[in-house]
């Protein structure tokens, strides 16, 4: 896979146009939820773009496709896969790749992303993003899988850093080192989930700021922000769960600002998948991200002036 499909315009208003399907603005977007179809189509709210989970649109027809078609006529789209199992030991599901390709052809998304995680073992699909050890063997497998995806979809993909709750004794490199090497070998881009960084830093006891500061910011094509829940582990220490079930925490907003200072303005998704709020609440959260982006832009102008 060559790397030429990505046209990097770092810090520009228009982000990388990864799939050649039109521009993705460096603004806030939100996940498209059936609960909001009518709000969106009735009022055409001023929002940058929408993201969908690819698997939810793999039915043959019906309301999901009808509404998505109507939304796509008005807004740029990001296609986010949750079931490809890129981090899995076994081969990718060719049928699933074909289904993704069909969605890319039909809806012409500006971005396609997937996770550094696995969800299928043998023929069983576990419906969760499960963790993998970071070592030479898994690095080679993940890179081979990403090559295959980019070949099949004929576009660059973004790989997202995960939330994890356990780590492996087999791990021999840091997550950032792992991601950096994946980018070098495959030419893929990265989806930086700032909330996942915060969740992992708390769960595994490292510094979120250090993680962000070492992240290969020049390869970030999209950012995710989502809410998390607080629990505790066996030692009574904080265990955060990336549940996308509430607004983004203040500490994560602060990290987001820090991340933007390195990446420049990027398309930023508000993820709210559980206990989905009313449209105005979700919209307000997106506006808050837009404000941070605008703030970052004006800071940069002042600094460079």
């Amino acid at each position: 896979m060559d790397q030429a499909t990505a046209q990097v315009t770092a810090n520009g208003v228009i982000a990388q146009n990864l799939t050649g399907n039109g521009p993705m603005p460096s603004r806030a977007g939100v996940g498209l939820k059936p609960e909001h179809y009518r709000d969106i189509l009735d009022a055409s709210p001023d929002i940058g773009w929408f993201e969908i989970h690819a698997e939810n649109y793999m039915g043959d027809g019906g309301p999901p496709h009808a509404y998505l078609t109507a939304v796509r006529e008005r807004y740029p789209l990001s296609l986010h896969g949750v079931g490809l199992s890129i981090g899995g030991a076994g081969p990718l599901d060719k049928n699933h790749l074909a289904r993704l390709k069909a969605l890319v052809d039909r809806y012409q998304p500006a971005l396609f992303s997937e996770h550094l995680a696995w969800s299928s073992h043998d023929t069983v699909y576990l419906n969760d993003l499960l963790p993998l050890p970071y070592m030479e063997e898994t690095l080679a497998t993940v890179c081979a899988h990403i090559d295959e995806v980019q070949e099949a979809l004929q576009c660059q993909m973004l790989l997202e850093n995960p939330s994890t709750y356990v780590a492996f004794a087999e791990t021999s490199m840091s997550e950032v080192e792992f991601l950096r090497e994946v980018v070098r070998r495959t030419g893929c881009g990265l989806l930086l989930d700032v909330s996942n960084v915060f969740v992992q830093a708390t769960n595994h006891g490292f510094s979120a700021s250090d993680y962000l500061d070492s992240f290969p910011a020049e390869h970030v094509g999209e950012i995710h922000l989502g809410g998390h829940a607080e629990d505790s582990d066996d030692d009574g220490e904080a265990l955060l769960i990336d549940d996308h079930g509430r607004g983004v925490a203040d500490s994560v907003w602060a990290l987001y600002s820090r991340a933007l200072s390195r990446t420049g303005p990027k398309p930023t998704l508000i993820e709210w998948d559980n206990d989905v709020p009313s449209w105005p609440v979700l919209f307000a959260e997106a506006k808050r991200a837009d404000a941070v982006i605008a703030d970052r832009r004006s800071n940069r102008v002042r600094v460079s002036a």
Binding site: F168, A169, N203, H204, D234, D235, E237
Partner: peptide
């Protein structure tokens, strides 16, 4: 082969909640 917070190896038990 899982490890808990701050990298200490566990024999399986201490990461049960995680």
């Amino acid at each position: 082969p899982l490890v808990g917070k701050s990298g200490r190896a566990t024999s399986g038990k201490t990461v049960t909640r995680s």
